[in-house]
Design a protein around this nucleic acid. Structure first.
Length: 462
RNA sequence: GUCGCUAUAGUCUAGAGGCCUAGGACAACAGAUUCUCAUUCUGUGAACACGGGUUCGAAUCCCGUUAGCGACACCA
């Protein structure tokens, strides 16, 4: 049985797009194999907890269509799915390791640890716990009985750890470079390492696809699995998304929350489609495809090892492609939902065909069509000197019987010819008079939408 | 600093020893269509990091160098 999971920490205001990318792969792998996809919340760091972060994260994932079979919201056979509610479990397993001699108590203070590391750094040694407490366990136990704060540390054995990464192949580490990891913190919460191993085992996770940043921690996890006598899952480490300068994607340099993109008017399906193309490509070279197709053709063995730069330009191009595929009615609904209910429905609907080719994202709609809802108050070009021509425009417009784009165009061509201006000059002047801008949707059609009266009013206002 | 991962155009990628005078997409540039912008269409420039091997033959395999990134917490 294939069971995958993502284990995000609610330390941000929403789900990180990097998490969305790995969630997508885990989800696809589970669904492709008729398995289950699980969301587990790893909220063991109380100092970094962001209020509301978990709810938002869970909701976004749900909205994106990455739906969990088991999670804190829907529950499941291995509940609870929130680590802060599983404290007893971690404690029990930490004690089991101590009994087996695979872990030990430590009462070293942060101060002592700091001093120790400082000294090690000065002597150019790698900072590593000196096992001060390991040699005095009886003493340490007494200290604990007297109420002293303590942690549980993993006793890292002297060995070589070799494992086969699903994406990178064989990877080996010497355990001598690994510190005796803290497993249980002095506040009774587990560290990531304990929590992730215990839960992945208990929840019967078969495949762990996670960010490359975890690769150096994997030997620690394997040591833990061995200490418990458990079979580790398959690991696959996915490359990290990058900023344009190739550093790890960060909010200082890039929008990183899924909601940043949704709020800009990037479609959810586009975010998934684009993210799926980070480090993976469709076997037929297709760029545009939906989630069900992705699930059908996705395979872990096709995941690339190089770390991709997240390119907003290409993301927006893709969104534009989706926009142009939409029917007028569907795009209208999306636009309405995006801009709110205060705009004239009829105008929105009529304007969609005019701007559909010009939009890359929903936030492009309003800047493009503002002039339809409101007369311009400023003009990008000074057309005061063209008043005599504009007067002729007005009288010609007044005579148009059927105020259609076609008729308006015919009549305006006539005025343009008489005006002595080049077509481009004439129409730019008229465009500015009507819209205030040098660039706009097709002018004749726009004028038709505004109606004869409004057009004349706007020209006379110059 | 130590350990690890990675290395095809500005970017995303195809490529699993001969099919590669390296393919596609975004971006750029040029042209066509056009009342502007956009769409659409056509075209152009642009890459196998470097050095050694292995082989009849290497973008593809091996080693080294360089570079980038990541990890070295009572954070995940």
């Amino acid at each position: 049985m294939i069971r995958t999971r993502i284990a995000p920490s609610p330390t941000g205001k929403d789900v990180h797009i990097g998490s969305v990318a790995t969630a997508l792969m885990n989800y696809a792998w589970a669904k492709k194999n008729n398995g289950q996809f699980i969301i587990r919340i790893e909220d063991t760091d109380r100092t970094r907890l962001v209020p509301g972060g978990e709810e938002k994260m869970l909701k976004t994932l749900q909205d994106l269509g990455i739906v969990a079979d088991e999670s804190p919201v829907v529950g499941g056979p291995f509940a609870p799915y929130r680590q802060s509610e599983r404290l007893d479990i971690y404690k029990k397993y930490a004690l089991e390791l101590i009994e087996k001699g695979k872990a030990y108590y430590c009462t070293c203070t942060p101060e002592r640890l700091n001093d120790m590391r400082k000294k090690q750094q000065e002597e150019k040694h790698i900072p590593k716990y000196d096992r001060h407490c390991l040699k005095r366990q009886e003493e340490v136990k007494k200290e604990i009985e007297q109420g002293m704060k303590y942690v549980v540390r993993l006793l890292v054995p002297e060995t070589e750890i070799v494992f086969k990464d699903l994406i990178r192949g064989e990877v080996r580490f010497q355990s001598s470079s690994i510190d005796d990891q803290v497993l249980l913190k002095s506040d009774g919460f587990p560290t990531y390492h304990l929590g992730v191993v215990v839960d992945d085992h208990l929840m019967e996770i078969s495949h762990v696809l996670r960010g490359e940043e975890w690769l150096p921690s994997t030997p620690k996890h394997i040591i833990l699995y061995e200490a418990f006598g458990w079979k580790p899952p398959e690991f696959g480490h996915v490359s990290l998304l990058r900023n344009p300068d190739k550093s790890k994607l960060s909010k200082r340099k890039n929008p990183v929350w899924a909601s940043d993109y949704i709020e800009k008017g990037i479609f959810k399906e586009v975010l998934l489609n684009y993210l799926s193309l980070m480090g993976w490509s469709h076997p037929e070279g297709k760029e545009i495809f939906d989630l069900s197709e992705y699930i059908r053709v996705f395979d872990i063995k096709d995941i690339q090892t190089t770390a991709p730069v997240f390119d907003q330009i290409k993301l927006e191009w893709m969104n534009g492609e989706y926009i142009r595929q939409l029917k007028v009615e569907s795009l209208k609904l999306k636009v309405q939902e995006y801009i709110g209910a205060t705009y004239d429905t009829r105008l929105i609907e009529k304007s969609i065909p005019l701007v559909r080719e010009r939009m890359k994202k929903l936030s492009d709609y309003l800047p493009l069509t503002e002039f339809l809802f409101k007369a311009p108050t400023t003009y990008e070009v000074d057309i005061q000197g063209k008043k005599d021509i504009l007067t002729k425009v007005v009288s010609s417009l007044e005579m148009v019987s059927e105020f259609s784009a076609q008729q308006i165009g015919d009549v305006m061509m006539g005025v343009a010819r008489e005006s002595g201006l080049k077509n481009s000059e004439f129409f730019q002047m008229l465009r500015v008079a009507i819209t205030g801008k040098k660039i706009s949707p097709p002018l004749n059609e726009s004028m038709e939408l505004l109606g004869k009266e409004e057009c004349i009013k706007r020209i006379l206002a110059i």
